[in-house]
């Protein structure tokens, strides 16, 4: 038997907030990790980034007022990814402005898949999931993060705009470009394919 006091909220100052954090934020651990994996493309760095993001999220949690804890957490994860990558690779710029990249240039960027497969990769049930992951990892970051947030995390446009700090119109065009790149890579060519007409903006 447990004394009822065990369940009494705010018995100890701060416990209520810890419980809230467990209820609202920790269920999105997979989402946080998935975003980190696709942004950093590095399993070990992803672990560190997610842990760092959780610490920051906890410290900032008292100020959290929004209605989407997931989007709020993912925005923190995204910032932590940028910080971690900047320090891991020196001052290498992570911001590739999409207007400076044609799809041809994009396709020449090549494949940045992880060199070392993680255990979960090895037990992956469907072999072509590896190909899909590699294709996502190969597209430039602005498109990659929009695709991951929309297709894998199923965030709304408004939430993606919040997480990535750009207007909704930019979210829409990044998704369109990202989808076009992935379709080129993963799907059989369209019967009516004429990418030139669609990609010129």
């Amino acid at each position: 038997m447990i004394a009822p006091s065990v369940f009494t909220p705010k018995r100890v100052a701060g416990d209520g907030q810890v419980q809230q954090f467990h209820a609202l934020i920790l269920p999105h651990l997979d989402a946080a990790y998935n975003l980190a994996r696709y942004l950093t493309r590095d399993p070990d760095l992803s672990d560190d980034v997610v842990q760092d993001a959780m610490v920051r999220a906890f410290r900032a949690f008292a100020q959290f007022r929004g209605d989407s804890p997931r989007a709020w957490l993912l925005a923190i994860v995204r910032n932590c990814c940028r910080t971690a990558q900047a320090s891991a690779r020196g001052a290498m710029s992570l911001v590739v402005h999409e207007s400076s990249l044609s799809e041809k240039a994009v396709s020449q960027l090549g494949n940045h898949a992880d060199p070392s497969p993680s255990p979960e990769d090895m037990v992956m049930r469907e072999a072509d999931a590896r190909g899909v992951r590699a294709a996502i990892e190969a597209i430039p970051e602005p498109f990659r993060e929009a695709i991951v947030l929309r297709e894998l995390e199923e965030l709304s446009y408004v939430e993606i705009a919040e997480v990535t700090g750009v207007p909704i119109g930019t979210v829409m065009s990044r998704l369109a470009r990202g989808r076009a790149m992935l379709a080129n890579e993963l799907l059989a060519p369209a019967k009516a394919a004429d990418e030139q007409t669609r990609s010129s903006k």
């Binding site: 416990d15 990790y33 906890f58 255990p119 072509d128 899909v132 799907l187």
Partner: peptide, 29 residues
């Protein structure tokens, strides 16, 4: 294709344990 396969990464258990063990996240009771 993006949603049907195991494309979404899941947090490894070791990471979940690490985060669960963070002192900040232990309820004080």
């Amino acid at each position: 294709l993006l949603r049907a396969n195991d494309v979404r990464h899941r947090a490894p258990e070791s990471l979940a344990r690490r985060i669960g063990a963070m002192p900040e996240l232990r309820a004080k009771g």
